[in-house]
């Protein structure tokens, strides 16, 4: 398009605009739709008429059969081919060419109006794909944690009262109580208990491994998927040194009940 001069392009745009004005006539529903369809599929009847002219020389039955084929093709073409008004995109090739011509030339005056027309018609909808969540258990993730993180599984603390935890993780980024699938109903109270023991801040985390269950927003503690558990615990800022972590673990083990 760039090789054409500006004047040529303007003339072409005018011509295409004029042809485009007939689009509404073409895509309008009318009694001549069937005729339009038949004209559109002219090649089918051209081929069949060639076959008729050849079949006449061979035998009468073949000749009659070819005429029958034309009659059947007539009905099937009328039936199965889409009418202009049934098309999804009710635009002719001329208007598409016009779009291309105008959109190529960004400096053209009528580009803005044309573009606005498009944007208004088609709202942008983000297509979201249902994500497949990998089938990984919390246990597997906690096993894969770095060595500086100390993971305690199925422990009971005897401090003020008897408290049972499914997972207790102590690492340089903090101390976490991990609850799986809302088994522990008093997770906040347990966190308060441990924080009164260690005099440190405790993060209660609720992990929902059941993919069918939706995540519900909770104001007091995060509810996350198992896949996000590791990144959640590692990404927090480091608070304790390795010696402090070992000290915390020792203090916890002092109050653990042997099972």
């Amino acid at each position: 398009m760039s090789t054409k001069s500006n004047r040529e392009r303007k003339i072409l745009i005018k011509l295409l605009r004029y042809i485009e004005s007939f689009d509404s006539l073409w895509f309008k529903r009318s009694s001549l739709d069937g005729l339009k369809v038949l004209v559109g599929k002219w090649y089918v009847f051209f081929i069949l008429s060639l076959i008729i002219s050849k079949a006449r020389n061979y035998s009468t039955y073949l000749y009659q059969l070819s005429i029958y084929a034309v009659a059947v093709a007539f009905i099937l073409v009328l039936g199965y081919s889409k009418r202009p008004y049934e098309r999804k995109e009710k635009r002719s090739i001329f208007s598409k060419a016009l779009d291309k011509l105008i959109l190529d030339d960004r400096g053209a005056d009528d580009y803005k109006s044309r573009k606005g027309h498009y944007v208004a018609k088609r709202p942008i909808i983000e297509k979201t794909r249902p994500r497949t969540i990998p089938n990984i258990t919390v246990e597997q993730i906690l096993e894969a944690m770095p060595s500086c993180f100390h993971v305690k599984n199925q422990i009971a603390l005897n401090y003020k009262r008897l408290a049972q935890f499914e997972y207790l993780v102590i690492g340089p980024t903090g101390i976490f109580i991990v609850d799986v699938d809302n088994k522990n109903k008093q997770i906040i109270q347990d966190a308060n208990l441990v924080s009164s023991l260690l005099l440190e801040e405790i993060y209660p985390i609720s992990v929902i491994s059941n993919t069918e269950q939706t995540l519900e927003f909770n104001r007091d503690y995060p509810t996350i998927r198992p896949t996000h558990l590791k990144t959640f615990m590692i990404s927090l800022p480091e608070v304790y040194s390795t010696e402090e972590v070992e000290d915390l673990v020792r203090r916890i083990e002092r109050h653990m009940v042997k099972q």
């Binding site: 029958y68 009659a71 009905i75 009328l78 039936g79």
Partner: peptide
């Protein structure tokens, strides 16, 4: 052919 016509007149 009559069968086809009858069916097409109903369907199409």
């Amino acid at each position: 052919y009559i069968l086809l016509l009858a069916y097409a007149s109903r369907r199409f």
